[in-house]
Nucleic acid binder design. Structure first.
Length: 614
RNA sequence: GGUCUCGUAGCUCAGCUGGAUAGAGCAGCUGACUUCUAAUCAGCAGGCCACAGGUUCGAAUCCUGUCGGGAUCACCA
């Protein structure tokens, strides 16, 4: 229970005692007082004026007097129009500061006994991770942290898309052009190695297709299938899939590979596992660099058949229905959606089938009562359907499913397109930001005397902070523009700016030789900025709860920035080590320590590490 | 076309469960390092919160419509 919650209770009580009005705590709006007015928190009394048929100012006055009398924490109040501004006394704030310092995990809630599974990243195994994955990973990781902080037990997981035609393309290309090389023999990171062959397949396929378009077969296909007045380019664009499936030599090979894989052909499986293992080694390195890990992975090659049993079962219970051709569907019209296919006519599973199976399997394995899927907003419809289906199947966790849907990442030049080679590679990006941090740091020269290894560690922390903060500060729901130049900025609203506030504090603390017998409470000359700092920290737990509830790490990012900004100002305006009095010095050291603690905790929730110096 | 979503300073973004005069950063211009890390701070300038209606004491925020961007509506994943 914090002070605003207490405040609301008192207001409710006052309204009831004075006017006999009955309302809930949630009907009371308490805001931070705007800087141009005097006070710490503001109660908006307009809403009561109507119900009580009394002038807002009058209600404000009476409420103010009531609170002043009942609460020892309030020192004064003033009423402006319909706003009741309340000031808390110094000792109240000093006590709050003490509370923060006493609790290393200030902001964290007690375990709530619930278990939530968070799925994120979930890459395909045919190419390396890119910028889009980074946004996904940061959101997933941070949401997991937030949920943990809010009291949940969290299982971090991914579904690895390790099967299908895409990986077969890489396999074919590797067989044709790989010459038995390996990531080891070439020195190329495993995921990039595989990606190279995927690209190689596409390149060769394109060449083959171009050639075919000029051939008799190609011209015939054009003549007999074109729409009226359709030009060649347009037609062949449209015809590409059919070409791949029926005419292309490469396409046919890839498809045969897929069939062999599904048949469990030994050589195919062997090649497949070997190539996938290279990819996993590569992914692992990238995850490690980003500082993330998973508690448990699920692989499509294991789970793609899982859904079928559930479908069979649902068919018996008439949740699903079968068409004449044998395909199985579900009617979602009652929830404003369409009919959705859950099993192909040949009995093979689709994306949805496997997701149904995976969800159930995950619940069997982990006994969760909530699941969060971090997936881009292009799949909004799919997840809406999936959740409805699971509800109809009466899965126990079905009412606690959340799709953390986030907007795609654009470049200043437009969309990222693999076809046009504009995809920003994750590993390259990470390397770039670290190098940028290194050169920025070198030119400042603060790290002279720090040993090589520690320096590298600091560069890594700074570079990644810049990158991560740049991405995580944006509200997930929104599409974002990623400007590589801006992402390595280390000044202003950035990760390094926040780190800098932290580093300044540690530097002061190192020099403080604190052996005082004073207490925070000995300081009674609290300055406006000092009070605001405590007030901001005091609200940290609420921010965490709200962010976890909304699955929105960006609000924590903005919170950290605001706190750091406030501290930088404080640092500039006030002396700490050479403060006017001993009690002021002691207080400011403690205040700084608390800010450092909160910044570290807050940034940790975002998956951002803090350096001790920079 | 149906549905969903976004539109706030030149640019990148906060603010959105309705509350006081809409905030930051970048870029531009002024200033502040013999003094706790200047990756900092202070200041100037920059806005018809896409547009039009509505709801009300009060709207960037809620509702409706229009315009613009994006996504989606596959026996693809």
């Amino acid at each position: 229970m914090n002070a605003t919650a207490n405040l609301k209770k008192i207001i409710v009580q006052a309204l009831n005692e004075i006017w006999g009005l009955e309302i809930e705590d949630t009907d009371v709006l308490v805001n931070e007082t705007r800087p141009e007015f005097e006070g710490d928190f503001t109660v908006v009394v307009f809403p009561f004026a109507k119900q009580l048929r009394t002038a807002p100012v009058k209600i404000g006055e009476q409420l103010g007097n009531y609170i002043l009398e009942k609460s020892t924490a309030i020192s004064s109040f003033n009423v402006v129009q319909g706003f009741l501004n309340l000031s808390f006394n110094n000792s109240f704030w000093n006590v709050q500061l003490d509370e923060i310092l006493k609790n290393v995990n200030f902001g964290y809630s007690e375990p709530n006994g619930n278990k939530v599974l968070v799925e994120f990243s979930s890459p395909n195994t045919n190419k390396p991770l890119h910028l889009g994955h980074i946004r996904n990973i940061l959101l997933g990781w941070s949401s997991s942290k937030l949920l943990q902080a809010a009291g949940y037990e969290v299982v971090k997981t991914q579904i690895v898309n390790d099967r299908g035609i895409a990986i077969c393309k890489s396999m074919i290309a590797y067989q044709l052009f790989g010459n038995g090389t390996t990531p080891e023999s070439t020195g190329i990171k495993g995921d990039h190695f595989i990606g190279k062959y995927y690209v190689s397949f596409e390149t060769h396929f394109k060449q083959e297709y171009k050639k075919w378009q000029k051939s008799d077969n190609g011209l015939n296909a054009f003549d007999s299938n074109k729409k009226e007045g359709e030009i060649e380019d347009h037609f062949f664009d449209r015809f590409k899939n059919e070409y791949f499936n029926t005419y292309s030599k490469l396409g046919i090979q890839a498809k045969e590979m897929l069939l062999k894989w599904e048949d469990g052909d030994e050589d195919t499986i062997q090649l497949w596992s070997k190539m996938n293992s290279w990819v996993y080694e590569g992914f692992e390195k990238t995850y490690e660099k980003l500082g993330v890990y998973f508690d448990r992975n699920y692989y499509e090659s294991d789970t793609y058949k899982l859904g079928k049993t559930l479908i069979e079962d649902g068919l018996k219970r008439e949740v699903f229905y079968k068409k004449e051709d044998g395909s199985v569907w579900i009617n979602l019209e009652d929830v404003g959606m369409d009919h959705k296919l859950v099993l192909r006519s040949d009995g093979t599973s689709v994306y949805m089938t496997q997701d149904i199976g995976t969800a159930q399997q995950r619940n069997v394995d982990n006994q969760v009562n909530r699941m969060v899927y971090v997936v881009a907003d292009e799949q909004d419809y799919h997840f809406k359907a999936l959740f409805e289906i699971l509800k109809k199947l009466e899965e126990p966790y079905a009412h606690e499913l959340h799709h953390l849907s986030y907007g795609m990442v654009d470049l200043p030049t437009g969309k990222m397109k693999s076809r046009e080679g504009t995809v920003v590679d994750a590993d390259d990006l990470i390397e770039d930001v670290i190098n940028e941090a290194k050169s920025a740091s070198m030119s400042r020269g603060e790290l002279e005397g720090v040993d090589q290894f520690d320096q590298e560690e600091i560069f890594r922390k700074i570079g990644l902070a810049a990158l991560k903060f740049f991405i995580i500060k944006v509200n997930p729901r929104k599409r974002m523009t990623f400007d590589p130049k801006e992402s390595v900025d280390m000044q202003g609203q950035t990760g390094p700016y926040i780190q800098n506030a932290y580093v300044r504090i540690l530097s002061v603390l190192r020099k403080s030789k604190n052996n005082s017998t004073l207490e925070v409470l000995d300081y009674d000359d609290l300055q406006e900025l000092e009070r605001k700092l405590i007030q901001t920290m005091f609200q940290f737990p609420d921010f965490i709860k709200d962010a976890a509830e909304a699955l929105d790490p960006s609000s924590i990012a903005n919170y950290c920035y605001n706190l750091a900004k406030m501290y930088h100002r404080f640092y500039h305006e006030f002396r700490i080590l050479s403060a006017e009095t001993e009690s002021a010095k002691y207080f400011r050291l403690k205040l700084s320590e608390a800010v450092a603690q909160i910044l570290k905790t807050g940034m940790d929730l975002l998956g951002i590490e803090m350096p001790d110096r920079m």
